[in-house]
């Protein structure tokens, strides 16, 4: 029993950064922008948080808890915003190819993360290629005081840092925004058929920019959660791994619905670490199990396309640039 709860808790923890990435990508894709730069943006979101936290924690004799959270949070958001702005400028204003731009952005973002991460490690005189911001990490990991006293229930529901709950709140808000508000309706229209949205008087460029930037900032928080909460304020080069791609897979798995992304992220998080919890696996068996999230995504993609239900298909103009004056 305890082991099952352990696995569930681990799956949830693994799922949180995926959920941030997936929610961010869903918002972005609803505007018709296929941002494959999300994995890079998540790296940048992480390293920006580390940089902000490093400057504050290491330069201040007695750091205040509120600022220990606020400064990394804001610098993380700023970092992701800049990345998303770059993507928007290239694809929306200059109308460059979205796939190429996104892939380049991912390479760029991972590079930035590792470059600054490596530099900071050097500056701290650390060895083993890692930075540790204990006080910042502690602030991010703070749990509700009564969590410990509630046993299994406490562990299952209350043992996470605030960013975990924020991920779910953001996903729920995103669903509400997309389904119940006028701006959400307009955004979906832009992603489905920008010419129609344009003719209806919706500013297509504005919506694409805002959706991509806000989506990028949400995704960046996934990187921040990873470095501050999961790894306790420590940066390791390439530590975040390929989780960004998994987040994009979840978008398809959850058929572009933020509410479905919540359980999907937990499921993928669980599958991601499943091999650790199964004793006595040889290395090829482990690798095979690690492919499960991707296999599941392919299966879902096939079933969804085969069923041809229009609502479950990607936004109709996903990946296409919009030119107004073209005939």
């Amino acid at each position: 029993m305890t082991k099952i709860i352990d696995i569930i808790v681990a799956a949830i923890i693994q799922g949180i950064p995926l959920l941030y990435g997936a929610t961010g990508e869903i918002i972005t894709e609803k505007s018709g922008n296929l941002n494959l730069g999300i994995p890079g943006i998540m790296y940048v979101g992480g390293i920006s948080g580390i940089i902000g936290g490093y400057i504050y924690e290491k330069m201040t004799p007695n750091p205040v808890t509120v600022l220990l959270i606020l400064i990394p949070l804001l610098s993380s958001l700023l970092g992701s915003l800049l990345m998303a702005l770059l993507y928007s400028f290239l694809t929306v204003t200059l109308k460059s190819n979205q796939n190429v731009t996104g892939l380049a952005l991912t390479t760029f973002g991972v590079g930035i993360g590792n470059f600054f991460g490596g530099s900071l490690v050097k500056m701290m005189g650390g060895t083993g290629g890692s930075i540790a911001l204990q006080q910042t990490g502690k602030a991010f990991r703070a749990q509700l005081p009564f969590a410990k006293s509630l046993g299994s229930v406490g562990k299952l529901f209350f043992s996470y840092g605030f960013l975990a709950y924020l991920a779910i709140v953001i996903a729920v808000l995103a669903a509400f925004f997309l389904n119940k508000t006028r701006m959400g309706l307009n955004l979906k229209a832009v992603g489905e058929n920008p010419a129609t949205a344009d003719a209806a008087g919706i500013n297509v460029t504005k919506y694409k920019y805002f959706a991509t930037c806000i989506g990028g900032m949400i995704a960046g928080l996934g990187g921040l959660y990873w470095v501050m909460d999961y790894t306790d304020g420590a940066w390791t080069n390439n530590g975040f791994g390929d989780r960004g791609w998994l987040a994009i897979a979840i978008v398809i798995f959850a058929i572009w619905k933020p509410l479905l992304a919540i359980p999907s992220a937990t499921l993928f998080g669980g599958l991601y670490i499943l091999s650790i919890y199964i004793p006595g696996l040889t290395s090829w068996q482990k690798e095979l199990i690690n492919t499960l999230p991707y296999v599941v995504t392919i299966v879902v993609l096939c079933t969804v396309s085969a069923r041809k239900k229009k609502e479950n298909l990607p936004p109709a103009s996903l990946g296409l640039s919009y030119f107004r004056e073209e005939r």
Binding site: L185, N186, A189, E192, N193, T196, A200, G201, K310, E311
Partner: peptide, 20 residues
């Protein structure tokens, strides 16, 4: 110029202002 996955009403109010 219509959005296929929207209802008639959603298409009709598209781009207008005020509460949805």
């Amino acid at each position: 110029k219509l959005i296929d996955v929207f209802t008639a009403t959603q298409n009709i109010v598209l781009g207008m202002e005020g509460k949805l």
